[in-house]
Amino acid sequence: MTQFIPLSKSDAPGPARIGIGGPVGSGKTALIEAMMPVFKARGIEVAVVTNDLVTKEDARRLQAGGLIDPERVSAVEAGACPHTVIREDPTLNIAAADDLEARFPGLDLILIESGGDNLASTFSLDLVDWWMFVIDVGQGDDIPRKRGPGILQSDLLVINKLDLAPHVFVDADAILAEARQIRAASPVIGCRCKGALIEGVDEIVDMLARDLLFQGAAS
């Protein structure tokens, strides 16, 4: 059973908190699973908070996957529309992240995966320092065109499952180009998280390392 430990007020910045949102089935958990070996190879210490509507399904999947110490995964049951606990009242998620931070003082990153939600989902910056929004080609090539706060306001838009594009009649290059045009200066990364060829995951971790952990050359 998880015991919540009050986090004492500290001058230390603590680990960066990253939001990962996006519609149900877009591959948020798969992306976390794909990033875990990259984090490990780079010596980046990570913990995860998952959000599900009325279950702990995503947390159990990560805990059983062998890619992360199960103790470093906490589950929040939203009990309502998932965006309510990452934007309107993120108290439960803040408490879960505080608890992980207190129990694992050496953390560099806490990933907060939202429950699946629609294109209007956004994260409160009281909860996270930076957030990405994950969509996939299987939802159709018009998703970027539909805009919505998730598409427009996220710090990074990830278009996942590029390997499925030919099977769902989507032009991968075209959907990426359109997303980049819609988001102007904000980044878009295409990726595939499963199968023999992993793509885009290193690029996402590079961005987190540069922008949140301040690794890499100054721009």
Binding site: A12, P13, P15, I44, D108, F214, Q215, A217, A218
Partner: peptide
């Protein structure tokens, strides 16, 4: 160093100044 700063030895091109308060 704090955990995230021990990851910073890659900073090579120009110094980056960190402000934490």
């Amino acid at each position: 160093l704090p955990p995230f700063l021990r990851l910073c030895p890659d900073v090579r091109a120009r110094p980056l100044t960190l402000y934490s308060r």
